[in-house]
Structures are given as structure tokens and as C-alpha cells.
Design a protein around this nucleic acid. Sequence first.
DNA 1: CATAAAATGATAATGATTATCAATAACTTG
DNA 2: CAAGTTATTGATAATCATTATCATTTTATG
Lengths: 156, 156
Amino acid sequence: MTGSYREDMWWHGRLRCRGYRITAGRDAVLDVLTKSDAHLSAEDIYMRVHRIYPGIGLASVYRTLELLAQMGLVYKFDFGDGRARYELAEGSKKDQHHHHLVCNNCHKVIDYNDFIEEEVELLKKTEKGLSRKYDFQITSHLIQFYGICADCRKQE
Amino acid sequence: MTGSYREDMWWHGRLRCRGYRITAGRDAVLDVLTKSDAHLSAEDIYMRVHRIYPGIGLASVYRTLELLAQMGLVYKFDFGDGRARYELAEGSKKDQHHHHLVCNNCHKVIDYNDFIEEEVELLKKTEKGLSRKYDFQITSHLIQFYGICADCRKQE
DNA sequence: CATAAAATGATAATGATTATCAATAACTTG
DNA sequence: CAAGTTATTGATAATCATTATCATTTTATG
Ligand SMILES: [Mn+2]
Ligand SMILES: [Mn+2]
Ligand SMILES: [Zn+2]
Ligand SMILES: [Zn+2]
């Protein structure tokens, strides 16, 4: 227990080995993402980080999110409400790979990982076929179902 | 042949029965969408419509696209280049149901419908399960693969 | 501590999309 | 067809998420 090694520092290596520096702002953004299981917007994240590290600027939050998305540490989504939403990529913590149900009315988002094994299996196969046919190097996929959530259906 | 019935007017009924009016602008937008197989932005569409019907305003193009997307006659996509992209929904013309490959670098989009049967079959099954479990009425889905296209890989 | 380079915060700028509103066009009814 | 009702439109301003700018501060490294 002497090293006081914090396991929530796993991304330090990832940044360093690409020549990026470890900063308080980046740490704080990752911290917020790690501790939330919601789909936060840049401003959501900015506000939460601000409590921990009031010096941070909104632009840095955007820059950090862009960087992390580029590196594949976070996923960036468009759920149709006019702002980007972010979540930590799996592999970082307990999170399972999952996809989304998106309400067209209230823009609520539901994570699901039912049928995920089958989906991913088919995706793998499809990826392989598409990569060859279109000479396209696939690195990720997006699957979302759209519709009307239970709450919104009640209100009509 | 006396009726001079134009088959590219199939959407008139769809609009009328919902109380919307048939206008030259809406006709022109649908016309452009029908004749293009690209993924056009609102401004792309505006410019093309402008040739046919110079009186149209950009706002009307946006309004029309919003309406048509709402009605399910066109699909609206976000391919990551900062503007929405539109395409006519299938059922309107020869188009087959398809999904997309999106290049993370140049934002090129490739339509594919290989493996579509299997994908759609699994999607149907998944939709059924998810609808029940989450009490969510699914109306559509989105599947995209991301990666680097052949051209972009050559240039590196 | 000195140095070089990366990162930051404050702020202005960008740019796609929306809201506003008076004028016009589409449908309805007689 | 004409008048009346209402949806739609074009022009334009406003919104607002995201980016660019740039002088200043941090980080990493020795
Ligand atoms: Mn999620
Ligand atoms: Mn397409
Ligand atoms: Zn809802
Ligand atoms: Zn490319």
C-alpha cells in the first residue's frame, strides 16, 4: 500500500506513449466519465469537472474529449438532440459492450446488451466481408434502434 | 394514357392524408432526392433545387427535410462532418435497404447491402426482444461501420 | 532550475440549424 | 371561379454547439 498506485490512472500510459501530457484537466475529465454511467454532453462534463477543478475551461473539455475519442478511449454519439454525447469506451472499467435504444420524442437513451453476443458475432462476420469487398479497414461500429419510449407513449 | 398521371407523385397522397399541402418547393426537394443517389446535405439540396425552382429559400428546404424525415419518407444521417445528410427512404423507388461504411478520415460514405438479409433478420429478432423487455416501440434502426477507406490508407 | 514544447483559458469566430413574421399560395366551400 | 381560411414561404435575424486564436501557463526532461 505504499505506492499509493491509483488504478484509475490506467490512461496515463495510453496518453504518454503517444506523446501527450498528463494534465489536471484531462485527469478530471476522465474522472467524471469514469464515475458516470450517463451519456453526458460536453457541457455536462464541463460543469461536473468544474466542481473538482474549477480552473478548467470549456474549450479544454472539448479538446480533451476530441482527443480521447480520437484515441478510442471514449465514444462520441449523436442521439439527435443537437449536441454530442460521450461515454467511456469499454475496456476501461466494468462496462460491457452495449448498444442503444433512442427515443425519437424525448431523446432518452437506454443501454442494452441483450442479444449482444449474436449481434457482435454477425458484426464480426460482416466486417470481414465488407473489409475485403470494399477495401475498407473497419475499426468500430454503431448500432442504434429508434422509436418511442414507454413514458412518451403514455403521454399521448 | 390520358390521365398524364406522373408516377413521381406518389408522395402527394402521403402528404395530403396528413393535412399537409402540396407545394412547388416540396415537389422540387423530393425531385432532387429521387434523382440523386448521393448523401446530400441541406445546402446541397438547396443548390440543386434552386436550379429547378429558383424561388425557394434555404429555410424551406430545411423545413421540408424535417417534415419528410418526420414522416419517414427520408432518412437523416450524421456521418461526422458537421452537417446532416439526407437520402430518400426505400419504398420510394428502386432503392434497396442498405447500411453504411463511413470513413473517419475523409467522411466518404459507402452504401452496402451485403449480408443485409442476415442483418435484418437478426435485427427483427432483436427488435422483438427489446420492445418487450424495455417497453419500447421500435420504428427504425441505424447501422454504420467506421474506419479508414482505401484512398485514405494510401495517402498515409 | 532551465529549456522546449504541449496545453490551457478566455474569448472571438464559425457555421449549421431554427425562430420570427409579414406576405403569399394552397385548399375548401359555395 | 371567388372569397375565405390556414398552411406555407422567403428573407432575415437569432441561436447555440463547436472551433480557432493567441498570449500565458504547465508539463516533461535533463
Ligand atoms: Mn451507452
Ligand atoms: Mn445510403
Ligand atoms: Zn421518450
Ligand atoms: Zn477516406
